[in-house]
Nucleic acid binder design. Structure first.
Length: 265
DNA sequence: ACAGGCTCCTGCAGGC
DNA sequence: TGCCTGCAGGAGCCTG
C-alpha cells in the first residue's frame, strides 16, 4: 500500500524527527509490514526513490525506511476514509492510494513520531528486552544489584520495554510481591513468579484489546476490556478479590501504585 | 552510573 | 451553572 501524500500539522512536539523530513520521506513510500516493539508501532516502508545499490527484487523489497509511532497516553493511530471529519488534535495524516487515511491523533501530545532512514541508521530495536519472550536467566539478571524498587525497575524501559503503570501493578499483585521492595532483594523464586505473572498479564491484556481507562480505543475505534480484569489498579479502598483486604494506593516512582497489603508481602 | 524528581499536555472529575 | 484546581501518565531531562 503506497502513501500518496503525507501531512504533518504540528511543527513542534510530538515529533522526534522534524515534520518536514517525515512528510518528504513518507510521500510515495510503500508499506511493507507493521509490527510492534515494546510500546512502539514500527512501520517498515520502502522509500519512494529506488536506490541504485539496493538488493535485487528476488527476495522481495527490503525496507529502507521505518516510521515509528509511540502512542504515549492518549495517542491513537486511526484508519479512516480521507473524507472523514478531521478531529481535534490530529497531528499527522497519511493518504493511501486506496482512498483511506492513516491519522495520528493525540490530545496530550505524549506520543512520538520518528522516521528512520535505514541506509544510514539502525533498524529500531527499542532499548530494553521484550517481556513476553524473555528467558528466566535474562529476566533475573535485569534486577541483580538494582537498588530501586521493583515497581520502578519494571517501569524502566531500558530494562523491559512495554510495561506501563497498570501492567506493573497488576503483575506485582499476581506475583504476590510488594511494589516497594528493592529489586535486588527479590529471590529467584519471586522473580520467576513475577516473570510468569507479567507475561500472563500482558498476553491477556493484548488479547482483550488493552485497558480502556478513560477514552482509549484501537485503530477501529474499539475499546479494550482488560480494565475489567484489573485486580488492584484503580481499585483503591475496594476489597481485594482474593482476600477481601482494602486495596491501598501510594505514590512510588512518581506514579500512583496500587497493591493489596495482605496478598503482597 | 544510578536513582529520583520534575516537566510536558489536555481532558476530566470534584469542590466550591 | 460555571469556574478553578488537581490529577492522570511515558519518557526525556536535570540534579544529587
Amino acid at each position: 500500500m503506497r502513501i500518496l501524500a503525507a501531512w504533518f500539522g504540528s511543527h513542534r512536539e510530538p515529533m522526534k524527527t522534524s515534520p518536514h523530513i517525515q512528510e518528504k520521506a513518507l510521500t510515495g513510500a510503500k508499506f511493507l509490514r507493521v509490527h510492534r516493539v515494546g510500546k512502539h508501532i514500527v512501520c517498515d516502508l520502502s522509500g519512494a526513490v529506488p536506490e541504485p545499490d539496493r538488493k535485487s527484487a528476488e527476495s522481495g523489497p527490503n525496507p529502507d525506511l521505518q516510521w515509528i509511532v509511540h502512542l504515549g497516553m492518549t495517542g491513537r493511530l486511526l484508519v479512516t476514509h480521507s473524507a472523514a471529519e478531521v478531529v481535534a488534535h490530529t497531528h499527522a495524516r497519511l493518504t493511501l492510494e486506496d482512498g483511506r487515511e492513516i491519522r495520528f491523533v493525540d490530545a496530550r501530545r505524549f506520543g512520538r513520531l520518528e522516521l528512520r532512514d535505514l541506509r544510514h541508521q539502525q533498524a529500531f530495536q527499542g532499548p530494553g528486552s521484550e517481556p513476553l519472550t524473555i528467558a528466566p536467566r535474562d529476566f533475573h539478571a535485569l534486577f541483580h544489584g538494582r537498588k530501586t524498587s521493583i515497581k520502578a525497575a519494571l517501569l524502566n524501559q531500558n530494562l523491559l520495554h512495554g510495561v506501563g503503570n497498570i501492567y506493573a501493578d497488576e503483575s506485582l499483585f499476581r506475583a504476590g510481591i510488594r511494589p516497594q521492595i528493592r529489586a535486588s532483594r527479590l529471590t529467584r523464586v519471586q522473580l520467576e513468579r513475577l516473570r510468569v505473572a507479567l507475561q500472563q498479564v500482558l498476553a491477556q491484556a493484548i488479547q482483550l484489546g488493552g485497558s480502556s481507562v478513560s477514552d482509549y480505543v484501537d485503530a477501529n475505534g474499539v475499546k479494550g476490556f482488560f480494565q475489567l480484569e484489573h485486580r488492584v489498579y484503580g481499585r483503591e479502598g475496594q476489597p481485594c478479590r482474593d482476600c477481601g483486604a482494602a486495596i491501598r494506593r501510594i505514590q512510588l516512582a512518581g506514579r500512583s501504585t496500587h497493591f493489596c497489603p495482605a496478598c503482597q508481602r
